[in-house]
Design a protein around this nucleic acid. Structure first.
Length: 131
RNA sequence: GCCACAGACCGCUUUGUCGCCCUUCGGGGAGGAAAGUCCGGACAACACAGAGCACCGUACCACCUAACGGGUGGAGUUUCCGAUAAAAUCGGGAGCCUGGAAAGUGUCGCAGAAAAUAACUUCCUGCAAGUUUUCUUGCGGGUAAAGGUGAAAACGUGCGGUAAGAGCGCACGACUGCAGCAGGCAACUGUUGUGGUGGAUAAACCCUACGGGUUGAAAUGCCAUGUAUACCUUGUUUGCCUCAACGGCAUUUAUGCUGCUCGCAUAUUCCCUUUUUGGGAGCAAGGGGGGUAGGCAGCGUUAGAUAAAUGACAAAGGCUCCGGGAAACCGGGGAACAAAAUCCGGCUUACAGGUCUGUGGCUUUU
């Protein structure tokens, strides 16, 4: 976890546990930063000041795997290049966050819209609730 | 050079910035369909005396193949085109779930008398009555030649024959069962003899032949985590030290630790009846069910992930479309179908644009 300050996005920062994801759906907090929707909760297990993230695109709106893969990769790039702004807030609170980012638009949007969504996400995140 | 058809192949390239997965630290990293999951295998687990029934699948022949419902070639059949005035015939293209309707059962709309043991109108005829040569009516019989209906009407044409008719008989022809001969590995074709004339439908039931144990990577094995246990099975033995209890030692059985041996660990306890046998509770192990639910192998092979890597952004070049221009060129736009999840052989479906080969046609030049 020594490179988390830079623009990497390795396995350690991906949310992989089925159990945690199920718990997110059951009791997570959520808000919308169009075209994205975020479900999150505080995690006691992870390293403080960082986050584990899963990105999803619903099959209902995008039928082919090629479309979904491209959207997921664009969201991932936008998050990867801007997550250091997010981490600044998290380390000031000393918490670790599990988070799911879903793409809720019906049509594929441009990469600029995704960037906008990620910035909105980081701005709107309710950091005061971490306490 | 252009167009059409058939077959094979390719599936934009390079650079920069920031990143991802695997790695033996050298390096490697989506497709022709990776797709649909429709067939066939490899492989794995479980099951398995033999035979029959049921169920499912396949269905002209030969070859290829690990195998196939796949491929190649051939046979049969239907249909279209060309040659010809037409038929026969010949050549070419396309289609065919292509075993059996002569084992049996069922079904066949409308029309038609009747759709499978055919008689409505005709035609011929017997009897009776009326009437009177030959007609009419009624009750019977014969007749599939004619009419009309239909997708289909009980082999076709001609002659004989007859009361009228009929494969009833004969000639020629069509189809077909059986037998022989010739050609072919075979399906089958040709031909001779002999028997027959039977509607369609098997994508209705059915019959025949051949094949099939079930499941399918969410299989399966292992490690970790970890718990209240219904129910079932097996084991819970014997002796010594000691007054006794506690405790200890040996032995036996079950299970685990490495497949075996040794060794070690856990349970080898209590109550009732008592001559013995036995019964009950507890404990241990296994089965079973519930709970927990992360990883490794499977998945090595020039990708090997596991909420799932193989990318994002930008620039240039090539391709192509639109507009402008005599041209060089300038400006703007577009780039398909679609992404591994154990592997392999096929099939099917989707696909912008391009390359090559062959065949046919048109045109230009020499």
């Amino acid at each position: 976890m020594e490179n988390q300050g830079s623009f990497t996005f390795s396995k350690a920062e991906r949310l992989k546990s089925r159990k945690t994801i199920a718990a997110l759906f059951r009791s997570g907090n959520s808000f919308v930063a169009y075209p994205l929707r975020v479900v999150w909760s505080v995690s006691e297990l992870g390293e403080p000041g960082f986050a584990t993230v899963v990105i999803s695109v619903p099959k209902r709106n995008f039928k082919t795997a090629v479309q979904r893969n491209r959207l997921k990769r664009q969201i991932r790039e936008a998050y990867r290049l801007n997550k250091h702004l997010f981490y600044e807030h998290l380390s000031s609170q000393g918490k670790h966050v599990s988070m799911m980012i879903s793409y809720i638009a019906k049509e594929p949007e441009s990469y600029d819209k995704m960037l906008e969504g990620i910035h909105k996400l980081i701005r709107k995140f309710p950091y005061e609730e971490l306490k």
